[in-house]
């Protein structure tokens, strides 16, 4: 690429180009091309995918950093609650019922005389398990069905939309009361199953919408014009461009699923003792709110922080992935 410092030459062309023709030759193809010349943001010296750009932004976003730290902490205590609360959440001493904080028991005791601190820490496991499993289930089921509906359209789309309308129509609390009251299991799985059942249509809608949007892009037409088949178009061109909104919605949904679990447990149809759960603790504390507010404060606070952290994370991820800013 000749530097324009050799401009002594091309300069001539302009000099006598009054008639309009002589300048045709001044710029050769090769010269026109080198990007970065003329100061256009140089494509940079490294390839930057949209994902790596998003990550670059996220690392600098305090909202993301804070919520991510909270979530990492929650996941750690969900997996190893003993690491910061070595007591047994089920070992209770009825004599200490509703006692305030004491040395070694900073959060005090609940009605049963159990240590609130230990129970709050151990309660994270149930909430995180339900949240993560329900989100994974709903995202897989909803994402798959929604993507297929968006991609193939036609009767398949119509059928799926009607089915998801049916599930949308079920009032979630009423559905929970009816469906879960017949279940006797004390594990988390019935609750997870119920949330997946009611949660997938929301994700399916988002997935369908973003697949429809991606499908309209010219690069999909270009791939078809090259003779690409449906599988290639779906896997190479549509899914990678449609997955971002699903991730965002799933992250935010994770937070709301955790609070849904707590709600159901509060109503007595979610998780049941002896499972330790924030919802159960909130439920049992709510009757004593005047006498022993600390019993409610800690599990409710933990729940709020957790839900908030996931919702903030979802927001931060959405900002980073929003293609309109690129």
């Amino acid at each position: 690429m000749p530097e324009p410092s050799s401009a002594q030459n091309p300069g001539e062309a302009v000099g006598n180009a009054g008639a309009g023709g002589t300048m045709d030759l001044a710029a050769t193809e090769a010269e026109t091309l080198v990007p970065g010349r003329g100061g256009e943001p140089d494509p940079g010296d490294r390839p930057r995918s949209l994902w790596s750009d998003a990550w670059h932004d996220l690392r600098r976003n305090p909202v993301f950093v804070i919520s991510a730290l909270i979530i990492v902490f929650l996941v750690v205590i969900a997996i190893w609650p003993q690491s910061i609360a070595s007591g047994n959440p089920l070992a209770c001493d009825i004599n200490k019922s509703q006692d305030g904080p004491a040395p070694g028991h900073p959060f005090g005791y609940d009605t049963q005389g159990c240590d609130v601190y230990t129970r709050t820490v151990h309660g994270a496991r149930a909430s995180i398990t339900v949240g993560v499993c329900a989100t994974a289930g709903a995202a897989l089921l909803g994402g798959l069905l929604g993507a297929l509906a968006g991609f193939f359209g036609g009767w398949w789309d119509a059928l799926l939309s009607r089915i998801s309308d049916v599930f949308f129509g079920i009032p979630i609390i009423l559905g929970g009361l009816v469906f879960l009251s017949v279940v006797t299991s004390t594990t988390v799985w019935p609750v997870v199953g119920f949330i997946v059942l009611l949660g997938w249509p929301q994700i399916a809608r988002i997935a369908r919408g973003s697949v429809l949007t991606a499908k309209q892009n010219d690069y999909v037409l270009a791939a078809r014009a090259l003779g690409a088949g449906s599988t290639r178009i779906l896997l190479r061109h549509i899914l990678p461009n449609a997955v971002a909104p699903v991730i965002v919605v799933a992250t935010i949904a994770l937070g709301t699923y955790i609070s849904l679990e707590a709600t159901l447990s509060f109503l007595g149809v979610g998780l049941r003792p002896p499972t330790v759960s924030w919802g159960i603790d909130i439920s049992s504390a709510s009757t004593q709110i005047r006498d022993a507010p600390h019993m409610l404060l800690w599990p409710a606070g933990a729940l709020s922080v957790t839900v908030l952290a996931f919702i903030m994370l979802g927001d931060a991820v959405r900002d980073a992935l929003d293609p309109k800013l690129r």
Partner: peptide, 23 residues
């Protein structure tokens, strides 16, 4: 597919005609 090799297309919008996730 064989015929497609011989007829190709250039699109109007350089922003939507290239898949942003591909190099």
């Amino acid at each position: 597919k064989a015929v497609r090799r011989n007829i190709q297309m250039v699109f109007q919008d350089p922003y939507t005609s290239l898949n942003p996730r591909m190099t």
